[in-house]
């Protein structure tokens, strides 16, 4: 057994520590059980709660990005369905 990792109790994503298939019920280190709606590759994140559009994606207890549209618990959270909030900040530094 290898448990998906949730770092902080505030987090709404867990990180896969092995490749996992659609339809699997995975368990996290905090003993939450999640039905995977999509395959989750090792190192990638899965939503452990429903996240609405524009709501923060939280890992390490911090906002790492925003949801681009509604994400269901069990769905893959990655570059395809998020908004990167850092880009503007970096552009400013380059000009600056």
């Amino acid at each position: 057994m290898r448990y998906f990792v949730v770092i902080d109790e505030k987090d709404n994503v867990a990180t896969a520590v092995r490749d996992a298939e659609k339809g699997e019920i995975i368990e996290t280190n905090l003993k939450q059980k999640i039905l995977l709606l999509e395959p989750i590759p090792k190192g990638h994140k899965v939503a452990i709660r429903d996240i609405r559009a524009n709501e923060p994606v939280i890992k390490y207890g911090e906002v790492i990005c925003l949801a681009r549209h509604d994400i269901k618990a069990g769905e893959h959270v990655h570059v395809h369905n998020i908004i990167d909030i850092l880009v503007e900040q970096v552009e400013a530094r380059k000009k600056g």
Partner: peptide, 15 residues
């Protein structure tokens, strides 16, 4: 990084 599952630079730095 992206293939490995990191989604944003914030996430990478927080690690």
């Amino acid at each position: 990084n992206i293939k490995g599952g990191l989604t944003t630079l914030i996430e990478k730095s927080l690690g």
